[in-house]
């Protein structure tokens, strides 16, 4: 297990290294002169020269990369060109919105998906099963940002139960803040819950067909007991993997949903960075997102191998 964890950690480090080189190359090397790009066509040569100096663009490319990476590793993400504050500070403020939103959606999606997946599998071929499968098929086809707009239309514009957007901040009180995150979280959770329910259903159907379930039934356990005691536990392994992987999808999906609800999260920050050509913000945030995805995949791999020793050797 230790050896497996070590090789996976090595591959994690390598992935991060290559990813950082790719991001650095796309943002800082391919455009030619990032300073001229950031300032636009009408910039004076002096302003460009000043920004070049501030960004350290006159130095050697390799040294700039090492500087950037060294900064990222020590929590120094550079200073935003438009906001004039450290990017790390901006990220900290925005994470307080994006991470709770993604977690909220993850919890919602799991709470919805597991029960209906289990019901569909236990009643395979029944009307309930067909109904659930049809609903999840629809859930996968609905774009989450459109679903978000429908939620706004129903619960904010018509019923006036929620506000159509904005975030009062955690200082306004936990429940007030959670209420503001509710519609966005529901919008984010819907497609993920549909996928998860389908995974839960097929995993449970597969384990229910195993010999050890037949043995349990032959031993005198009821269908229900056999399902809860033996099948469910085994079926949960692939489901947990998908839940882990969904966290990174939710973080990326939050980028779009935050724009629907005008939430001051990482997603809005990235878009402001793009429209204001603030490459420093974009570069660090993209690296952070990719880091999150790679890290979560790594943790899922490790958790998976810990649960199932067979996976430690084969890939």
């Amino acid at each position: 297990m230790l050896r497996f964890a070590f090789t996976r950690a090595l591959s994690l480090a390598l992935s991060l290294l290559v990813a950082s080189v790719v991001i650095f190359a796309v943002i800082e090397v391919i455009p030619g002169d990032p300073a001229a790009y950031m300032l636009g066509l009408n910039a004076s040569p002096e302003a460009v020269a000043a920004l070049r100096e501030q960004l350290g663009l006159d130095g050697n490319v390799a040294m700039r990369y090492l500087d950037w990476m060294g900064g990222m590793l020590t929590g120094d993400f550079g200073t935003s060109y438009t906001y004039k504050v450290p990017v790390a500070e901006l990220v900290n403020q925005r994470l307080a919105v994006s991470v709770p939103l993604a977690l909220y959606a993850l919890v919602l999606s799991t709470l919805i998906a597991l029960p209906i997946g289990i019901i569909a599998a236990s009643a395979r071929g029944s009307a309930a099963d067909y109904g659930i499968m049809g609903a999840t098929q629809l859930g996968i086809a609905v774009p989450n940002f459109w679903f978000a707009m429908l939620l706004v239309l129903i619960f904010a514009v018509t019923l006036r139960w929620f506000s159509a957007g904005g975030f009062p901040g955690w200082d306004a009180g936990f429940w007030v803040a959670m209420k503001a995150l509710t519609l966005p979280a529901v919008a984010l959770a819907l497609p993920q819950a549909s996928i998860l329910a389908r995974v839960m259903r097929s995993a449970l159907i597969e384990t229910l067909g195993q010999d050890y379930i037949r043995t349990a039934r032959a031993k005198g356990l009821s269908r229900r007991e056999a399902t809860t005691r033996h099948a469910l536990r085994n079926a949960l392994i692939p489901v947990l993997t998908i839940i882990g992987l969904q966290f990174s999808f939710l973080l990326a999906g939050a980028i779009i949903i935050e724009n629907v609800f005008y939430l001051p999260g990482l997603g809005r920050l990235i878009f402001q960075g793009i429209t204001q050509r603030d490459l420093i913000v974009v570069e660090s945030l993209v690296m952070l997102l990719v880091f999150a995805v790679i890290l979560v995949t790594f943790l899922v791999d490790i958790a998976y191998a810990a649960a199932d020793p067979r996976l430690r050797t084969k890939r």
Partner: peptide, 11 residues
């Protein structure tokens, strides 16, 4: 795989 299409689009 570590780059969701949205992140590639952003880059």
């Amino acid at each position: 795989f570590a780059f969701p299409s949205l992140v590639i689009a952003i880059l």
